[in-house]
Amino acid sequence: MNAEFIEALQEIEKDKGISKDIIFDALEAALISGYKKNFGSSQNVEVLIDRVTGEVRVFAKKEVSEEVYDDLLEISLEEAKEIDPSFELGDIVQIEITPRNFGRIAAQTSKQVVTQKIKEAEREIIYGEYIDRENEILTGIVQRAGSASTLIDLGKLEGSLSVTEQIPGESFQQGDRIKVFVVEVKKTSKGPQILLSRTHPGLVKRLFELEVPEIQDGTVEIFSISREAGSRTKIAVYSNDPEVDPVGACVGFKGNRVRAIVDELNGEKIDIIVWDKDPAVFIENSLSPSKVLKVSVNEDQKSALVVVPDYQLSLAIGKEGQNARLAAKLTGWKIDIKSETQYIGEGGSKDELNYSKSDEMDSIL
């Protein structure tokens, strides 16, 4: 090594952000291994690199002992004092043992170490960039669509979209541009690994944040989301401004905002619900589009009994129980739905039910 090598390290430090000291420490550790590999020594050795000239020197480290049992690791007090009279028992003496051809080994090792450190630094920089993107949306280009996962080009590296994180029925072609949700960024021996999703509820949340200015500025907030990807999503919102309708803000003029999100999700249905601090009202809203006659809540068990008109029972429950299931996830309450007839048949009072005019007309007809 020489002064040119030191200058090269200074350039690397400037361009790549890698400290020279980190490279020197790694080089010295690697050269110790290189020395032992090439010279078969079991000595306790230390390699020192001059930070100014780049000169490499190898030293054997020996403990000053009263009796020497292993001359590779120990040195007598008499021999130590010949080197420096100040040495005492227990001190460590460094004796230079630099081989004549060690420069060749040092040059070869330095190239490998510097290359490795540059790779590690670049991976660390990329990891630092993407770790802050967890739980965010990225737009990527499909590189390769496989049966188990799809590779997405995100710019500086590729992300993995497993088949379980793809919307059911969705297929991709190479070159397709898609939006993906960053679930996790992991460090691996091969560099950062990014796990992506198209089924995560967070994707819907971020899409609404992108499309709705009132959400971006905090006027409207998202309380919760429940989703069965590819089929239906319920999203509960509320407004911090009494003059702003949270549902209207999310739907947009002629439905343009929510339509853009539905299109991105390949036609997935989206129910936008108004959150209310009153659990009974929130639960009633969550069962939209079904009408509700009564909600009785049990705060201790966090459960609710909901009564709906007979003709609305199937709508309230939904196909294969989906509407009720999503409502329960959205509110965090266990919801038991009964028809008006079931409720009265089990001893409930009809007078307790909250009929609207349309409900009354339906019962008369």
Rank of each mutant, 00 (worst) to 15 (best):
A3S: 13
G267T: 02
V163T: 14
E352Q: 14
L210V: 00
I83M: 03
L210Y: 07
D153L: 05
R123L: 03
E120P: 00
L77D: 02
S65D: 03
A106R: 06
T341P: 07
E129D: 12
L353G: 08
V297A: 05
N44C: 04
V247S: 00
V281Y: 06
D276F: 09
E165C: 12
T115C: 00
G128E: 12
L157D: 09
G318L: 09
E13A: 15
H200M: 02
S197G: 01
T150F: 13
Y35C: 04
L293D: 05
K156P: 00
R198M: 00
R232A: 11
P309E: 03
T199V: 15
I344A: 01
V204K: 00
K269R: 15
E88M: 05
G332K: 11
K156N: 12
K61W: 02
N298W: 03
K111I: 12
E214K: 05
V182F: 13
S224K: 09
R177A: 09
D300K: 15
T219F: 14
A327R: 04
E352W: 06
I137L: 14
Q322Y: 02
E78I: 06
I141T: 14
I272Y: 00
E228V: 13
S303L: 08
K334H: 14
E124A: 14
E7Q: 15
A249I: 06
Q10H: 06
L138K: 10
N135F: 10
D217V: 01
E158N: 14
P99A: 04
A29C: 02
V93L: 07
N298A: 04
P99M: 08
V220T: 09
L161G: 04
Q322F: 01
D362W: 11
E214T: 08
T109R: 07
V212Q: 00
I137C: 02
R57Q: 10
K350G: 09
V68H: 10
K156H: 11
K338C: 07
G248D: 10
G348E: 10
L72I: 05
D15V: 13
R177L: 13
A229G: 13
G255F: 03
Y130M: 12
I270Y: 00
N101D: 15
V306K: 02
S110W: 01
F59E: 03
D351L: 10
R257K: 11
I97K: 08
T341K: 12
D245P: 05
V182A: 09
V308Q: 02
A229K: 11
K14A: 12
E340M: 11
A26W: 00
E320V: 02
T188M: 13
L73D: 05
D21H: 07
S160F: 13
E55L: 09
K277I: 08
N298C: 06
L73C: 04
K117V: 00
K156R: 15
N2S: 11
P85L: 01
A60Y: 01
E360M: 15
I194P: 03
V64Y: 02
G191S: 07
I335F: 07
D15Q: 15
L196A: 03
N354Q: 14
A8R: 12
V251H: 05
F208C: 00
P99L: 08
K81Q: 14
E96C: 08
V247D: 02
E46G: 04
H200T: 01
P201N: 03
A80N: 05
E79T: 04
G128R: 09
F5N: 01
Q174W: 01
F208T: 00
S171A: 11
V292I: 15
E352M: 11
